[in-house]
Amino acid sequence: MLQPILFAFLGGALVSVSRAINGRLSLATSAMTASFWNHLVGFLFLSAVALLWGGLMPGGWPDAPVTAWFGGTLGVLFVASGSWLVARIGATLTAMLVIAGQMVSGVALDLALGQSDNLLPKAAGVALILAGMMLARRGR
């Protein structure tokens, strides 16, 4: 009962940890250099985990649409922009705005894919998020 709650919370905290660490590296190098090291270190670590514990491809190489190959590239741009942002506007504001963008675009994507029922509360959620963003902007 308690373990998943702790893990999920920790998972979120670690998102902020890696953004801050990459931000620090970007100050000494560049945002894209930080993103490169982030991915290389992550790749080596996950390779080691897969070698030790297995579970990488239990059913053979999975079949996926061609778009799956571009997830990593988007991740590189995401980490680079996060490193640049956290060193300039701080961790809290960066997290706030990224979450806002993720939620609003998620609702838009569901709409575009026609996977959206229960639209009214989601629209209310988007309105709250946009209000929060305007407030954050006023505070500066």
Binding site: A64, P65, T67, A68, W69, F70, G71, G72, L74, G75, L77, F78, S81, G82, L85, I89, L93, T94, L97, V98, I99, A100, G101, Q102, M103, V104, S105, G106, L109, M133
Partner: peptide, 17 residues
């Protein structure tokens, strides 16, 4: 920052494939 949140949505979609 807001746009990078949109990037994240697409990334999660693609990696999830």
């Amino acid at each position: 920052a807001f746009a990078s949140g949109g990037l994240l949505t697409l990334m999660v979609l693609f990696n999830g494939q």
